[in-house]
Design a protein around this nucleic acid. Structure first.
Lengths: 369, 369
DNA sequence: CTGTTAGCGCCTTCAC
DNA sequence: GTGAAGGCGCTAACAG
């Protein structure tokens, strides 16, 4: 395999010249440049990345730390981040953590050894403080999707609160008054924010409206099943549900179906994330969609800016979510509609502008802003 | 950041000694070893990976080349490969190709520069020969899931043919006589094999049975929709369908539903892959499951053995698939059952032993053989 | 602009 | 067993 000095020799210049020419497009007499290019081609020269990295002290590689690649939501995130990385000529090293802190800490420690220049960090569990400490000791970590409150780093988060508000209003507008919330872990900001949004929407709707059921668990199908079984055992069930993730929703549907409860006939439902083939479930599910692609784009951009040394405030970016209106929300059965439903309905009519109606499949591919 | 020679100095030995001690557990007087260990700890020494790699000429990193991380099937594969890599202390570099050959070739070329030691290679499109050429020029590529006929490399493939047979027999056993096949690209081995399996099952069932519909396209939901629209326009439709991938199935269901065709009432269906929440669709889908975890395990093991220099035949490993019996296959409507259904049914009764019945969720997590 | 010269940090033959 | 020394291939100061 050809080396730099061989190229230089064959081109009749020094190695340094070729190196500089290759790296910073140093201006070179057109003829010399051509000569070098031709030698490179004929020798099939490609620089040795390790030598380069050793010398420069960085790797032109970023790491993606993610709980579980097989989870469609994280897979979507991984896909988006990979695209961004490629766009910037960066390699992407994948760390699936399965929520083991050791693995997360391990990934962080790799920054110090320049194995990766930085990390796009997605976690899914509460931190006992060790994670935040490790992150704060490094520049070059950007948090995506889930917050670690004690960590000082750029954060790219979805507007979870507004997601809750949108979901709540949507259910309320359809006539629901007894709402239920099925969340993830109670100590995760994503869950508390989505919950708060829902409650705010309920508050705003007046005293006729309330959240009569709440369930917290993991962001898993099993947690959804557990919530379903609790629901099935209730006497005065909520008529409208807001589930904080698709995974939860899948389990919830499974459990509800096992109990012969039908959506939306017996219960309306809004889910969160909108990955996976939710529009193909029966019924197609109304969902709050997170902007994965945009999150990835902003995350990588912020990371790169940070690595470039641009001093930037430790900003938290909030990306807007969208309500995708499908078919899992209808009016509750007659006897459950309160008398003043119509009045409330009018009051909120404006909100429909912020939603998006869609029944077909989710558009995919490049749609950068 | 501490360096090797600082550790050596502090421990009162030479750098070479520490290096050897660290790498091959060279036997050292217990006391010296302890001294070194303590220095390493107190200095928080960790070797610089780039220096190490430059020196050794390899990277202890493998690459995963995959068409699309967001696709649940490939995400599942990525997840499994990542686990295997971590198990072996290997880094995993992710290359999502979106089926662009340039990107695939780029990944392969990185082997030569020792950016990765080897590649787990998953492709999804027909090769014009350039891919095979590039692969054959390198040791250190293992093909997973889809064949590239002209490539000489270890291959880990699912037993697609038997998958087709299992699907076919299952439909036939349920009483279906007019079967349909909805495949991927006709020039992909996975599709031709699955199709051949189905046809063999049909042949074996005798002349009353036949494949009366075939559709080829990409492994995408859109291709499934296209197939659905062709089906809807037919007069004498097949009663039982075998779709060659989950993605196709999702589009197929979408299209069929749009045409007010109901599964399994109007048509039975067996799908292939069994990733994603197919058991939560209505109805839960009967599927042929690919052994993702096992494919990853075998793939990484084979790659490592190859890199270790173990001379091994260019073996093609066929991994067994499994029929997961859920609820998308029932007997066709009365008027379509042929007279001798019962006889055929008895003849094939033995096969049910090879299937697995399951209605709940797919078990996840570590289940290595 | 261009070449010379040190490293970057580790591994590994070679002599002791 | 152990240390000294050269090399892995490239980059970045420093001269010219």
């Amino acid at each position: 395999m050809a080396r730099l000095r061989e190229v230089a020799q064959a081109a009749g210049v020094s190695a340094a010249t070729v190196s500089r020419y290759l790296n910073r497009s140093l201006i070179l007499p057109a003829e010399t440049a051509a000569r070098i290019e031709s030698v490179i081609r004929s020798l099939d020269y490609r620089p040795n990345p390790h030598a380069r990295r050793l010398s420069r002290g960085r790797s032109d590689t970023i790491g993606l730390v993610i709980p579980d690649v097989a989870n469609p939501f994280f897979a979507g995130l991984a896909d988006a981040v990979e695209q961004e990385a490629e766009l910037h000529g960066l390699g992407l090293l994948l760390f699936a953590t399965r929520n083991r802190s050791e693995r997360e800490l391990d990934a962080i420690s790799r920054i110090g050894r320049t194995l990766v220049d930085g990390l796009i960090f997605v976690t899914n569990h509460a931190d006992d403080g060790s994670l935040a400490r490790a992150i704060n000791a490094e520049r070059g970590v950007v948090l995506l999707d889930e917050d670690i409150a004690a960590a000082q780093a750029p954060k790219i988060l979805a507007d979870n609160h507004n997601g809750g508000v949108l979901a709540g209003r949507h259910l309320i507008m359809a006539g629901h008054r007894r709402l239920g919330f099925i969340g993830g872990p109670q100590d995760l900001l994503s869950t508390t924010e989505r919950r708060a949004g829902l409650r705010d929407a309920v508050l705003q709707a007046g005293p006729a409206c309330s959240v009569t059921f709440e369930n917290f668990g993991d962001y898993t199908a099993d947690a959804g099943r557990a919530a379903a079984s609790r629901l099935l055992n209730m006497t005065n069930r909520p008529t409208g549900l807001f589930a904080a993730s698709d995974k939860i929703t899948l389990g919830l549907l499974d459990g509800l179906r096992a109990g012969a409860m039908h959506i939306p006939r017996d219960m309306s439902l809004v889910t969160f994330d909108d990955v996976g083939p939710l529009h193909l479930l029966d019924p197609p599910l109304t969902a709050i969609r997170q902007p994965l692609r945009e999150m990835a784009r902003r995350g990588v951009d912020l990371l790169l800016a940070r690595l470039r040394g641009e001093s930037m405030p430790e900003q938290t970016v909030r990306l807007p979510v969208q309500l995708i209106d499908r078919a899992s929300v209808i009016a509750p059965r007659r006897n459950t509609i309160s008398a003043n439903a119509t009045r409330i309905r009018r009051k909120h009519d404006a909100y429909h502008q912020t939603g998006v109606s869609q029944h077909g499949s989710r558009p995919r591919g490049h749609n950068r802003a």
